[in-house]
Write a protein that binds this DNA or RNA. Structure first.
Length: 104
RNA sequence: UGGGUGGAACACUCUAUCGCUGCCAUCUUAGGAUGGGGGAGGAAAGUCCGGACAGGGUAGAGCAUCGCACUGUGGAAAGCACAGAUAGGCGUAAGUUUAUGGAUCGUGUAACAGAAAAUUACCGCCUCUUCGGAGGUAAGGGUGAAAAUGUGGGGUAAGAGCCCACAACGGGUAAUGGCGACAUUAUCCGGGUAUGCUCCUGCGACCUGCAAGGCCAAAUAUACCGACAUUUAAGGAUUGCUCGUCCGUUGUCGGGGGGUAGGCUGCUUAGAUAAAUGAUAGAGGCCUGGCAACAGGUACAGAACUCGGCUUAUCGUUCCGCCCUUUUU
RNA sequence: GGUGGGUUCGUCUAACGGUUAGGACUCAAGAUUUUCAUUCUUGCAAUAGGGGUUCGAUUCCCCUACCCACUA
């Protein structure tokens, strides 16, 4: 809980639809990932769970391809108000993370 | 055959690949690895009722306040369930749905319209008259959600439950049936409404809620100010009040300030602490459209201490009972 | 997670269960003025949604939706 506030207040932000990515430098081997789907866009808990699980699965399968993620705490906020299927989420997440890598 | 109605159960299945969580065992070690067997619902939801449990130091009495209110049974209890009673509404029917204790002493309301909304009299009718009016009526008219029971006859100056017959309503008594609400029959009595507050009767309720509460760690300040008191008492706590009980200076209460806000437990044969129970691909069911190929759809929804109900959301499938309808015998 | 409160014209609000739901600001039209502002007149515009009680609900009761506050 404290960590999330620190990331939110100190981190740098970039947008890559449908994600808002907030990241912060941290010690290597102690990285954290926060996935957030706002209640404002999805009232039902079932839909929020579905999106969160898809994002987590996409991140799990692809995270090893992005070496630049080491030493960074990440916060992914899903800002779209419609539900994407797994293929589209995987694609857009890759785009977002590569953008992060090029910026860094 | 088509449609309806009441109840019950289920609410997609299998395979492959990659993963999550916590339990047990083993191996390594303080990071893990391997194996085994668990891992969302009928509503987990809304938080509308009621318990269990916990705290408010302990155990209480009365009043006030609040809630419920036809009958029986079940139940720890419930704005609970089932079965029934009476009076209505909907439906051809099966069924479904709404209401319900007693009293009428006191008191309020009944908008507009209407003469009058609770002991009524505008038009009308009748009698008398000094022609100004006085008195008697409630048949008929019109207003309204509601106007004092309806029909017929007698009676009368005109009329009226004023009297009679039948019917409706309310109450008493008796008999019969039913555990009971109540029903039926007989007989007697009665005659200006509805509703809120009020009063009475019975039953239930102390308040706050797991972010309750307990333990450990860390941090700190018994700061300071005010009131009371050391003996009575004031005062404070306990339920709003009264009584009772307890505290009463290493004290209590109020004001005001500082620090911490982590872990364990509570907590469960699902058991997290920001939240696991999955993702993807393929195949097969089921439904709709179509000759077919094929296309589309496959609901509502995600545990956070727990249990009993209620309410709301929900594509559909199966089974059982019943009703209406069509055809045949 | 738990507890409590609310929703009325575009905005801020009022209401005894009883006329066409009132008022202020805004908006539109007209008048006044050489023109604008001010002022005056007129108009548009709402009970969150769905049921129930009642002769009749903004009001009383129930359900749903949304908003806000408190509680560690």
């Amino acid at each position: 809980m404290k960590t999330s506030e620190l990331i939110y207040s100190q981190g740098e932000t970039l947008f890559s639809y449908p994600f808002k990515v907030i990241f912060r430098e941290t010690a290597r081997g102690d990285e954290k990932l926060i996935i957030s789907v706002p209640k404002k866009n999805f009232k039902r808990a079932v839909k929020r769970n579905l999106i969160r699980r898809r994002i987590r699965e996409a991140f799990r399968l692809n995270c090893r391809e992005w070496a630049n993620l080491q030493g960074k705490d990440l916060m992914l906020i899903y800002v779209s108000s419609s539900i994407f299927d797994y293929g589209k989420i995987s694609e857009t997440l890759s785009a977002a993370l590569s953008k992060l890598g090029s910026d860094a």
